[in-house]
Amino acid sequence: MRALLRRVIRDGKQTAVLVTHSALDALVLADRVVVLTEGRVVEDGGTREVLARPRSPFTARIAGLDLIPGVRDVDGLRTPDGLLVSGRADGVEVGDAAVAVFPPSAVAVHTTRPGGSPRNALRVRLAAIEPRGDVVRLRAGAAPGGPAWADGLAADVTPAAVADLAVEPGDELWFVIKATEVAIHGAG
């Protein structure tokens, strides 16, 4: 199928519309993507730009990234519940709607709130443990009294780390992300 679509697109005489949830298919086959959530367009643009700088949680998940919504603050991103997420802001003004984006591989997982230099520590409830090749994805759910936007965040760790943590769904954890690993950009 990919070979046929590539030939049609390369020919330049026809336009093809492909519906997919695969970031790989989109990157390989599309020059432009339109992302729909609940029947409405939430993102539209060049494939690489949309997948590298998602503005919606759904697009971030397709791209394999974590996303936290909020408003650009002088010191980073301020979530709707008031939490400050520190990161590197790019082209977004203070007060504008923004998102903080980071890969699950940038998330360290702790069973107790850690100290130290990482600026971002989020209390979550473990929702799922998902084997993914040589890593294990720990999928977060919102912790009791915690922000709803934490639901779906992910951390990629080694199987040995999961064994050392001795965690199971329902456990409360801390997802910790260094500010240098967080990109803050406009939400739309």
Rank of each mutant, 00 (worst) to 15 (best):
R7E: 14
I9M: 09
R10M: 12
A16W: 01
A16N: 11
A16G: 11
V17R: 02
V19E: 05
A23E: 14
A23M: 13
L24S: 12
V28C: 11
A30C: 14
D31V: 03
V35N: 06
L36I: 12
T37M: 12
E38G: 10
R40P: 03
D44M: 07
G46C: 02
G46L: 10
G46A: 12
P57C: 03
F58N: 03
I62M: 07
I62Y: 06
L67N: 01
P69E: 08
G70S: 05
V71W: 01
R72L: 00
R72Y: 06
R72I: 09
D73P: 07
D75V: 01
R78P: 05
R78G: 00
T79Y: 04
T79Q: 06
L83C: 05
L84F: 01
V85E: 04
V85K: 00
G87P: 04
E93T: 13
V94G: 05
A97I: 13
V99Y: 08
F102L: 09
S105P: 02
A106H: 12
A108L: 15
G115A: 10
G116V: 11
S117T: 13
P118N: 09
P118Y: 09
R119Y: 04
A121K: 08
L122D: 02
R123D: 00
L126T: 06
A127F: 00
E130H: 13
P131A: 05
R132F: 13
G133E: 11
V136S: 05
V136K: 01
R139W: 09
R139I: 15
A140I: 05
A140L: 01
G141R: 09
A143V: 04
P144T: 12
G146R: 01
W149C: 01
W149F: 11
A150D: 03
G152D: 08
G152H: 09
V157H: 03
P159Y: 09
P159T: 04
A160D: 15
A161D: 00
A161Q: 02
V162K: 02
L165W: 15
E168P: 06
P169Y: 09
G170K: 00
D171T: 08
L173P: 02
W174E: 02
F175E: 11
K178L: 07
V182P: 02
I184Q: 02
G188W: 12
G188F: 14
G188R: 15
